[in-house]
Design a protein around this nucleic acid. Structure first.
Length: 876
RNA sequence: GGACUCUUAGCUCAGCUGGUUCAGAGCACCUGCCUUACAAGCAGGGGGUCGUAGGUUCGAAUCCUACAGGGUCCACCA
């Protein structure tokens, strides 16, 4: 069979993924093996794969595939998140395009559209994960709005309500006027914007005097209910007890005193709008001020604003118009440019309005304590550890979590209102009725009205590790006991508060146990200019297209070539190209080995090379394992990359054993080589699942149902033989020097040369002699006692090498080279001698360090001697 | 404003508790090669006084201090 010259992935990828599915290699059931569990961070149900997913899921797949090969019961549970606000926003936009307004639909009608949308787009991202090679247990695919999940979320709400952790109340919350819903503090993103600071003067009542305040939000003036000054501000003592008039509407407001006001900022006078600012709200509470909410839920001004010219207009339109009117009326003293931070909605991008609203909250302070402790004491381990700091500062200052959202798509809050305004919280309407009747026996089902709001998405996904194994409804079941706590969570640090912290909280609340042992935080994927990947910049490549272009294995390894844990990943297509090239290199090594014939008549030819490679392989396995333990996945890949390509397998081992054209290989070498190749493929499999499966299936007899994905992961069989590794290093350096000499003298590799060696360790070069001869085309290799005249020479360690090249030696140049080296060695020797001559060094430094210095001295001395000999031989 | 963190080759990064893994890796770059697995390749090569200034030490990329410049999170004086 002819094998193509380059790796052609398309058919191979499809074939093996289907094969894996057909044989249910990814399916997991509890058994006696050690479990290794990962729950996927559920992507938004209607989302499509982006580079972040790509990185994230590749890492998860690497971990789970390795665990599976190690004989653990690997279980990676996939699924999707209903993504309440994100999905609802998409559906609303879609309906709008069709000319349908959400407000014209009933709740049920709207939800029907949502479900249609979910069914239409819901499978896309899961399909894309398959393309990426993800070895998820697809039979376990879950969704945060599945009936069982929905029920669990509802039950948890009821439970936490009865435990007193959930309460309902009017608080200052973050209002998203575009989404028309409350948001949690975490969903607000502060952005620096260029704005204006307006200095506005208010008339003092019954006087011609004015007081000037500074504000960035003149549109809220209509909701002012006080002016506040510092009690010790000498400039304003005459205003104590006076009243001021709100411009335009001339409403009377008190001038109050509070130390909260900074005398340095602006004019030292603060307008107080309790309805539209958190600090003002607190001042309002303290001084019992009236609260006038001048905004509607969509961000337009309400009737309460009083000025008819502004009612119904958007807050930002009003800001401009009112500034003009104030100017015209002579109320503007000045307007300065000003930079300030403005809160925006994480989802809709709209500028947040602080607003007083009745919402549901979870009291977090006590509730979250175990989650803080168990991260600080490393019961749950963060990788990299720097995120512990971030986590701690958030947890120590945790605010109550606003969990209600004025949306329809999501888990409806299981609170039922009675006609008198009282409410009950219950798992079902029937139970609610029962509770209601305890309050008032006459109540009927139709008297109850369920809360219209739904829960924050994160108030469902925080139960993910628990609910995937049904640990909430049936805490004693076999699955949850087996799979929980899960092994590793792989996610972006950007959702550490949204999701990670809350899952830990829920885990300790409902199982008194962490949800995962390790959390691996990936960085952000950025472009090579460090810009965030975004649709509007157009700098976000489509992962699917990349996979088409560079192969899935190429892209998977490419994205890992540069992803240090926790650091941002600067993505460049070049990396995928490197990954593709690597796949191709692997492919061609397969072609080479595949073409070899066994010659039964040959005795073992390459024992030295085999011993050496075995050592190198064991060494790499140990190194990779150490990297895996530290979650340094990129370094693990780099280790196998170099072992396979430049450092050992292709660059040296295969070149050494490669038979001449038309000749065969001895049995032992062939078998060993296949064994090595298999191990290399297995080490590579977690990174590059497809190509490794394809080749693994080809290089030896396999049965139907065999797969590298369930083959045993290589272990280091022995402590690597450091001696032979060091010897090989010397030998390879010799070969490099010979090639270098050829290069410098422009002698073709085809021209055979002789090599003379002057050394104390003949045995070493006898053992490696044929290797040197083969790889650097040396015809005769022998040993000499003295430096050779008229030859090109070089030094490796303290072994001297001479290549007789008649008529091609430029004595002057050779001498110059040797002199330069000699000077360096002499300087080096001097520094070592100086060190050893320093009594304080000899007495203070560790003995082995001193010993090492002495060795250095001896080495340098023998090198100097050798160089001097060569020089004298050459100048004779 | 608070906290954390970073600054090492052109780029992205390793360098653990101070001393032979101490100045490294990958990529990029330069030179020469279509050598019968692979030009998506092969052979060879050149790049850094480890942000700056002090200090501790026999010895500092590594520890301490200050400064400069990045980054991140949190909080926010309107």
């Amino acid at each position: 069979m002819a094998i193509s010259k380059t790796y052609e992935p398309k058919a191979i990828e499809e074939k093996w993924y289907q094969y894996w599915l057909d044989h249910k290699f990814f399916h997991s059931e509890p058994d006696e093996r050690e479990p290794y569990t990962i729950v996927i961070p559920p992507p938004n149900v209607t989302g499509v794969l982006h580079m972040g997913h790509m990185l994230n899921n590749t890492i998860q797949d690497i971990l789970i595939r390795k665990a599976r090969m190690e004989g653990k019961n690997a279980c990676w549970v996939p699924g999707t998140d209903h993504a309440s606000i994100a999905t609802e926003a998409k559906v609303v936009a879609m309906l709008k395009e069709q000319g349908i307004a959400k407000k014209d639909l009933s709740r049920d009608e709207f939800l029907k559209y949502c479900w249609e949308w979910t069914e239409k787009y819901g499978g896309i991202i899961l399909h894309q994960l398959k393309k990426l090679g993800c070895s998820c247990d697809w039979d376990r695919t879950d969704f945060t709005m599945n009936p069982a999940y929905y029920k669990a979320v509802t039950d948890v709400f009821v439970d936490l309500y009865h435990k007193g952790y959930i309460y309902r109340g009017a608080r200052m919350i973050n209002w998203d006027p575009a989404g028309k819903t409350a948001l949690s503090d975490e969903e607000v993103i502060y952005k620096e914007v260029n704005s204006k600071l307006y200095f506005v003067k208010y008339r003092i009542k019954d006087s011609d005097e004015f007081v000037t305040i500074a504000t960035t939000r003149p549109e809220t003036i209509l909701g002012d209910t006080a002016i506040c000054i510092h009690p010790e501000d000498a400039r304003y003592t005459h205003l104590h007890g006076k009243k001021a008039l709100v411009p335009i509407i001339n409403r009377e407001i008190p001038i109050i005193l509070d130390e909260y006001v900074s005398m340095e900022f602006g004019t030292g006078c603060l307008k107080v709008t309790p309805a539209h600012d958190l600090n003002d709200y607190e001042l309002g509470q303290k001084h019992k001020l009236e609260t006038i909410d001048t905004l509607n839920e969509d961000g337009t001004l309400s009737e309460a604003a009083q000025a008819p010219q502004y009612i119904g207009k958007d807050r930002f339109v009003v800001r401009k118009e009112i500034a003009l009117e104030l100017e015209a009326l002579g109320h503007i003293v000045k307007i300065e440019d000003y930079k300030n931070q403005v809160g925006t909605s994480e989802r809709t991008g709209a500028v947040i309005e602080p607003r007083i609203s009745t919402q549901w909250f979870i009291a977090m302070k006590e509730f979250s304590k175990p989650a803080l402790e168990n991260v600080l004491n490393d019961e749950v381990q963060f990788h990299p550890t720097k995120f512990k700091n971030m986590y701690r500062s958030w947890m120590e200052n945790v605010k109550d979590w606003c969990i209600s959202r004025q949306l329809w798509w999501g888990h409806r809050i299981p609170a039922y209102y009675l006609p008198d305004g009282d409410f009950v919280v219950a798992k079902t309407p029937e139970e609610a009725l029962q509770l209601a009747q305890e309050k008032n026996p006459n109540l009927q089902m139709e008297d109850l009205r369920q809360d219209e709001d739904v829960l924050d998405t994160w108030a469902s996904s925080w139960l993910w590790p628990l609910q995937l194994f049904n640990g909430l409804e049936n805490p004693e079941n076999k699955e949850i006991k087996y799979y929980y706590p899960t092994s590793t969570l792989v996610t972006g640090f950007d959702i550490i508060f949204f999701w990670v912290a809350r899952m830990i909280i829920a885990g300790y609340e409902y199982r008194q146990e962490k949800p995962f042992k390790n959390v691996y935080f990936t960085g952000m994927v950025r472009d090579k200019q460090r810009r965030k990947m975004s649709k509007s910049l157009g700098n976000s490549p489509d992962p699917i297209e990349l996979m088409e272009q560079f192969s899935t294995d190429g892209v998977r390894s490419g994205i890992l070539f540069s992803s240090p844990a926790g650091n941002d990943l600067l993505f460049d297509e070049k990396l995928c190209e490197q990954g593709r090239n690597f796949a191709n290199k692997i492919w061609n090594s397969f072609r080479l080995i595949h073409g070899w014939e066994i010659d039964q008549g040959l005795t073992p030819q390459h024992e030295t090379a085999i011993t050496w490679f075995e050592a190198a392989l064991n060494q790499a396995i140990i190194e990779m394992e150490a990297y895996y333990v530290d979650f340094r996945i990129s370094d693990a890949l780099m280790t196998i990359y170099k072992l396979f390509w430049t450092d050992a397998f292709c660059a040296w081992y295969l070149e050494i054993i490669k038979p001449e054209q038309g000749k065969g290989l001895d049995v032992q070498t062939y078998q060993k080589t296949i064994e090595f190749f298999e191990k290399l493929l297995k080490l590579l499999h977690p990174f590059m699942p497809f190509i490794t499966e394809e080749i693994w299936q080809e290089i030896a007899e396999r049965k139907e149902g065999d797969s590298i994905s369930i083959a045993s992961y290589p272990q280091a069989e022995a402590i690597p033989d450091k001696t032979i590794l060091a010897e090989a290093e010397v030998v390879f350096e010799v070969i490099t020097q010979i090639r270098n000499t050829r290069n410098a003298k422009q002698i073709s590799p085809k021209v055979a040369l002789d090599l003379k060696i002057k050394t104390q360790e003949k045995a070493l070069f006898e053992r490696f002699g044929t290797i040197i001869q083969k790889l650097s085309n040396i015809q005769n290799l022998d040993f000499v006692e003295d430096a050779l005249e008229g030859a090109a020479g070089f030094l490796v360690k303290n072994h001297e090498f001479f290549i007789p090249i008649e008529g091609q030696i430029d004595v002057e140049k050779e001498l110059e080279k040797l002199q330069k080296d000699l000077e360096y060695q002499k300087g080096f020797l001097m520094s070592v001698e100086k060190k050893l001559g320093n009594e304080r060094f000899v007495s203070n430094a560790k003995p082995e360090v001193v010993e090492a210095e002495k060795q250095k001295k001896a080495d340098a001395e023998s090198k100097i001697k050798a160089l001097e000999e060569s020089i004298s031989a050459l100048s004779r």
